[in-house]
Amino acid sequence: MSGNGNAAATAEENSPKMRVIRVGTRKSQLARIQTDSVVATLKASYPGLQFEIIAMSTTGDKILDTALSKIGEKSLFTKELEHALEKNEVDLVVHSLKDLPTVLPPGFTIGAICKRENPHDAVVFHPKFVGKTLETLPEKSVVGTSSLRRAAQLQRKFPHLEFRSIRGNLNTRLRKLDEQQEFSAIILATAGLQRMGWHNRVGQILHPEECMYAVGQGALGVEVRAKDQDILDLVGVLHDPETLLRCIAERAFLRHLEGGCSVPVAVHTAMKDGQLYLTGGVWSLDGSDSIQETMQATIHVPAQHEDGPEDDPQLVGITARNIPRGPQLAAQNLGISLANLLLSKGAKNILDVARQLNDAH
């Protein structure tokens, strides 16, 4: 009898209710805020589980004197976190989706994509230029951005401005803007500013005609071990179906173009009346040469937790077992079709030249 009692006690200790789920994140304040929001949602869904947040620095956090596009290494903000995932030191990792490459290392998958916040870019102005827009900034004003995508589009749109690289986390960039006289304004992701509670610093939100956004911008991705079915089931509740389908289309477009950090590629997606609209573009580094096109596809946005595919093969690095396969494939095909259209119009040449120029500098 006593033996059975011990077995029952052991089973209770090993039951999922007692389990601590370890969540990996970057150390920056924004990353911690984003991770806290994901953990809060998981806690609400699984009140019996405990969650421990483990923060670590990544290569991208450490190399702050070089433009991201020049470092010449993929997975700048993800490699150390993936290493911890691989060694079973954490069970899942919360990322900004735009930091996750469209091809993940073997053994990993994006197990959830959370509801997207505003994906557009924002302009934050130096205190002396508050009330201005990019259009009304004085001639030769210097605007800071760490992104080739932003610089290429904005140089084309605002030729009277000069664009220079600015690195560091959000706090560091804002301090550089406010305390030094080098920059009249800087460009940042609206979602990051909003998550930090800095709505009052948003001086201008850039519309798609001015600057399309990065693939996955404004959404959070939760990376897990691809074979860890328990954790895949656990994080599945975080999937937002519309965000998922938009981001599958965007990531398929980028992957098929073979774009990345070192080339200016941008997108804009919208879901309306059962249609998914995808606009994508590529630019030369100075913005003088560009190709942009829009395509659409009829896609039914499923309700969360309709029964999805059981075999769960990944699409552009994403596993969404609780979302039907048909809409996911339709979104992926839309991204591939748009990429093929741009490639047929000469996108590869623009991107190759951009890559060579970026590598040469």
Score class of each variant (00 low, 15 high):
residue 210 E to M: 01
residue 73 E to A: 09
residue 272 K to F: 13
residue 205 I to Y: 15
residue 298 T to C: 07
residue 285 L to G: 15
residue 22 R to T: 11
residue 93 V to G: 08
residue 346 G to Y: 00
residue 227 K to M: 06
residue 157 K to E: 06
residue 98 K to T: 01
residue 271 M to W: 06
residue 20 V to F: 09
residue 252 A to V: 15
residue 331 A to N: 01
residue 101 P to M: 05
residue 244 L to A: 03
residue 38 V to L: 08
residue 351 L to D: 13
residue 80 E to I: 09
residue 86 E to H: 13
residue 194 Q to P: 10
residue 217 Q to N: 00
residue 219 A to Y: 06
residue 81 L to F: 12
residue 190 T to S: 05
residue 172 T to Y: 10
residue 308 G to R: 07
residue 293 E to V: 07
residue 83 H to Y: 14
residue 145 T to I: 04
residue 211 C to E: 01
residue 174 L to H: 08
residue 267 V to I: 01
residue 31 A to N: 00
residue 119 P to R: 04
residue 293 E to S: 12
residue 246 R to A: 14
residue 130 V to W: 06
residue 301 V to F: 14
residue 54 I to Y: 12
residue 215 V to N: 00
residue 223 E to R: 01
residue 321 R to G: 12
residue 301 V to K: 03
residue 55 A to L: 10
residue 300 H to F: 14
residue 104 L to G: 08
residue 134 L to A: 07
residue 126 H to G: 11
residue 64 L to P: 12
residue 220 L to E: 03
residue 127 P to A: 06
residue 219 A to R: 03
residue 244 L to C: 12
residue 314 Q to S: 06
residue 286 D to P: 08
residue 337 S to I: 11
residue 269 T to Q: 02
residue 191 A to E: 01
residue 125 F to S: 04
residue 240 D to Y: 13
residue 79 K to C: 11
residue 248 I to A: 03
residue 289 D to Y: 11
residue 203 G to M: 03
residue 94 V to Y: 03
residue 107 G to E: 10
residue 189 A to S: 08
residue 349 N to Q: 14
residue 70 K to Y: 11
residue 138 P to G: 08
residue 250 E to D: 15
residue 172 T to C: 08
residue 102 T to P: 10
residue 330 A to P: 09
residue 276 L to I: 06
residue 126 H to I: 15
residue 60 G to E: 03
residue 258 E to C: 15
residue 291 I to M: 13
residue 331 A to T: 08
residue 148 L to W: 06
residue 284 S to I: 15
residue 339 A to Y: 04
residue 168 G to L: 04
residue 100 L to W: 05
residue 103 V to C: 15
residue 30 L to K: 01
residue 33 I to E: 03
residue 92 L to T: 07
residue 81 L to K: 03
residue 111 G to L: 01
residue 42 L to Q: 00
residue 256 H to W: 15
residue 319 T to W: 01
residue 39 V to T: 08
residue 187 I to H: 01
residue 193 L to C: 01
residue 51 F to L: 11
residue 39 V to Q: 08
residue 256 H to L: 09
residue 238 L to R: 04
residue 204 Q to L: 14
residue 312 D to V: 10
residue 109 T to M: 08
residue 247 C to E: 04
residue 241 P to W: 14
residue 92 L to F: 10
residue 77 F to V: 02
residue 114 C to V: 06
residue 26 R to Y: 01
residue 222 V to W: 01
residue 305 H to L: 11
residue 86 E to F: 08
residue 232 L to N: 13
residue 349 N to D: 12
residue 25 T to C: 06
residue 148 L to I: 13
residue 358 N to T: 15
residue 163 F to W: 13
residue 125 F to W: 12
residue 66 T to P: 13
residue 63 I to K: 04
residue 30 L to C: 10
residue 175 R to Y: 06
residue 21 I to N: 03
residue 229 Q to Y: 14
residue 179 E to H: 10
residue 27 K to R: 15
residue 311 D to A: 14
residue 53 I to Y: 13
residue 92 L to C: 13
residue 51 F to M: 09
residue 259 G to D: 11
residue 355 R to A: 03
residue 99 D to I: 00
residue 162 E to P: 00
residue 101 P to R: 03
residue 72 G to P: 13
residue 93 V to W: 01
residue 149 R to C: 03
residue 76 L to R: 12
residue 234 L to G: 04
residue 238 L to V: 08
residue 248 I to C: 01
residue 132 K to Q: 14
residue 251 R to Q: 00
residue 225 R to T: 07
residue 318 I to M: 09
residue 52 E to V: 12
residue 211 C to G: 08
residue 353 V to R: 06
residue 186 I to W: 01
residue 169 N to R: 10
residue 342 L to D: 02
residue 47 P to K: 15
residue 83 H to A: 12
residue 77 F to Q: 03
residue 126 H to S: 14
residue 174 L to G: 04
residue 55 A to C: 08
residue 48 G to Q: 14
residue 242 E to F: 15
residue 19 R to G: 13
residue 85 L to D: 03
residue 31 A to Q: 00
residue 65 D to K: 14
residue 94 V to F: 04
residue 37 S to I: 13
residue 277 Y to A: 13
residue 65 D to Y: 09
residue 156 R to F: 05
residue 151 A to E: 04
residue 192 G to Q: 00
residue 275 Q to I: 06
residue 106 P to V: 14
residue 193 L to V: 07
residue 170 L to D: 02
residue 161 L to T: 08
residue 337 S to N: 15
residue 178 D to F: 06
residue 146 S to C: 04
residue 47 P to A: 07
residue 145 T to C: 06
residue 126 H to L: 08
residue 266 A to K: 07
residue 79 K to A: 10
residue 39 V to Y: 10
residue 58 T to V: 08
residue 59 T to L: 06
residue 304 Q to K: 14
residue 294 T to F: 09
residue 72 G to F: 14
residue 124 V to I: 11
residue 95 H to G: 05
residue 56 M to W: 08
residue 235 V to R: 02
residue 23 V to I: 04
residue 271 M to A: 03
residue 104 L to I: 13
residue 95 H to A: 08
residue 322 N to V: 11
residue 44 A to K: 14
residue 224 V to T: 15
residue 193 L to E: 03
residue 265 V to P: 05
residue 161 L to V: 07
residue 201 R to Q: 09
residue 107 G to T: 01
residue 216 G to F: 05
residue 115 K to G: 13
residue 93 V to Y: 03
residue 237 V to Q: 04
residue 136 T to A: 07
residue 64 L to S: 06
residue 176 K to E: 09
residue 26 R to A: 04
residue 74 K to H: 10
residue 217 Q to T: 02
residue 308 G to I: 14
residue 136 T to R: 11
residue 38 V to Y: 02
residue 244 L to P: 04
residue 194 Q to F: 00
residue 48 G to I: 08
residue 102 T to A: 11
residue 352 D to T: 06
residue 72 G to W: 06
residue 351 L to E: 14
residue 327 P to S: 05
residue 71 I to P: 07
residue 96 S to F: 01
residue 296 Q to H: 14
residue 178 D to H: 12
residue 72 G to T: 08
residue 315 L to E: 00
residue 246 R to E: 01
residue 125 F to T: 03
residue 285 L to T: 10
residue 205 I to W: 00
residue 121 D to N: 03
residue 152 A to Q: 05
residue 166 I to P: 00
residue 313 P to S: 14
residue 166 I to F: 13
residue 151 A to M: 03
residue 206 L to I: 03
residue 310 E to A: 14
residue 274 G to H: 05
residue 135 E to F: 11
residue 53 I to Q: 07
residue 211 C to P: 01
residue 289 D to K: 03
residue 68 L to Y: 10
residue 306 E to S: 10
residue 52 E to S: 11
residue 175 R to P: 05
residue 92 L to V: 07
residue 192 G to H: 01
residue 211 C to M: 15
residue 40 A to R: 07
residue 104 L to D: 05
residue 337 S to R: 14
residue 234 L to F: 07
residue 92 L to P: 02
residue 191 A to K: 04
residue 290 S to F: 14
residue 299 I to T: 14
residue 159 P to C: 13
residue 324 P to E: 03
residue 314 Q to T: 10
residue 166 I to R: 04
residue 178 D to M: 11
residue 295 M to W: 09
residue 287 G to D: 06
residue 134 L to T: 06
residue 57 S to V: 13
residue 153 Q to P: 11
residue 311 D to T: 05
residue 64 L to W: 15
residue 227 K to P: 01
residue 141 S to H: 11
residue 121 D to T: 02
residue 154 L to I: 05
residue 189 A to V: 02
residue 38 V to R: 04
residue 114 C to L: 10
residue 50 Q to G: 05
residue 113 I to F: 00
residue 70 K to N: 15
residue 196 M to F: 14
residue 273 D to N: 15
